[in-house]
Design a protein around this nucleic acid. Sequence first.
DNA 1: CGATGCTTTGAGGGATATCAAGAGGGGTGG
DNA 2: CCACCCCTCTTGATATCCCTCAAAGCATCG
Lengths: 247, 247
Amino acid sequence: MDAHNAHQLLVRSLQTHSRLAKQDVREIAALPHEIREFQPGEDFIHQGEAPKVAALVVSGTVGRYHILRNGRRQYISFHIAGDLPDVQALFLREMDHSVCAIGAAIVAFVPHRMLMRAFNRRPSFAFAIWRETLIDAAIFREAVTNNGARSNVAGMAHLFCELFYRAREAGLNNGMTWDFPVSLTQLGETLAIAIATVHRTLRELRATSTVDFRDGKLVVNDWTGLVKIAEFDPGYLHTRDPLGISP
Amino acid sequence: MDAHNAHQLLVRSLQTHSRLAKQDVREIAALPHEIREFQPGEDFIHQGEAPKVAALVVSGTVGRYHILRNGRRQYISFHIAGDLPDVQALFLREMDHSVCAIGAAIVAFVPHRMLMRAFNRRPSFAFAIWRETLIDAAIFREAVTNNGARSNVAGMAHLFCELFYRAREAGLNNGMTWDFPVSLTQLGETLAIAIATVHRTLRELRATSTVDFRDGKLVVNDWTGLVKIAEFDPGYLHTRDPLGISP
DNA sequence: CGATGCTTTGAGGGATATCAAGAGGGGTGG
DNA sequence: CCACCCCTCTTGATATCCCTCAAAGCATCG
């Protein structure tokens, strides 16, 4: 993925929720960056670090997670092409979590300094990135509720809904299929359930004929049905155009 | 609480994590606002609304929460004097959650339009508010991990640590006591456990002699011990000065 | 002083964590 | 090319935690 595409990716991603003026787009096109590739499971930002560059996912899926002292891991969110999984470090020096590649991933790194300069020249660009971080926060809020107040089946369905919806928004789906190369262990560390329960919940979901997840592929057979099981309402993702896949 | 104090409150709160220039402070002092008072349990922002003003907690405690269709409630976070519990609505029109008073609360409302104007005049003020929203997001992330990866005892201890630490930062504590007028039901809806379990967990925590919560009062007897039980590390709150209560 | 709402406590049953073991698949090295 | 190994998925059995239900205690307030 060349430089040109990384810029386009960010523009397109921000435009799902914000209006960008031509000057904003020009400002983005001028951002220097370095592209790097990561293996499945590889960390590229570590809890405790104070990065001087911001990551832009170019391809693949990455995950934010916490590690507790007992080694227990909790995934907080997943991010796909166009997302900025650590951009909050612009204003919060020290990372409170790590970010790793889920499958193989390509990531572009943009110096904080250059972003701040662009913000000063184009406040509307800053506002777009701000909005991006606010949508992140809404996703975290939903994760709290998802793990706390929903049943296992509804929670897993909701996770699938959210990710499928966001992937579709970003144009990353292959029809009703989306590559999500996560292991059952990782799914458990996301939904806060044991791996055996992950498998049983997955089986239960399959039995509804709405969705199937296996071999790192998510297949949605009945979007409306899945949304109903999950009580999924994409409002919290704050996209300007729901792309017509809402029920 | 008069207008003067509401401005001071915001300045002081932002200064726990950001540097404000004199012009920023002047800009804040010029913000018009309306003060209102709320009864325990009363909502003042509703899921689905698109507010045109931002709330600043002046006194008391307020809570953000989601409601599911089955009526189940999940509290996401609590906010104290100086906090801005719905400022994200500046950029995300529609609220994805509600905000209610926990005990009695006094709240100041500042028109979005005035905040945006101040942002355009003083980008550094905008950055301070942005940082505030990013700390919010860090609190949400921690809540995901708290409810997912920690035991009930550790999770409750962590919630108490976070709130006590933030209250102390804001100068709201009375020695080692802090008013937290939450019911056991609400605690359960925060930690995602049943009320009977809340009570038993509370009893278990009491038995450690580190902390006591009853009658809406949180009393910390052994901060270091409590921090150890919770594995609490205040780094994610990103305050410039830890106020010397870290272990 | 009865009513109401929150807290406290007990009993029982169900969901899920934990433990254990086998199956399948891909990669590696002989 | 095959055998072996490792990792993940799959499944079953058991133990335990916690949710649910029920009821009593306690304070506040009309």
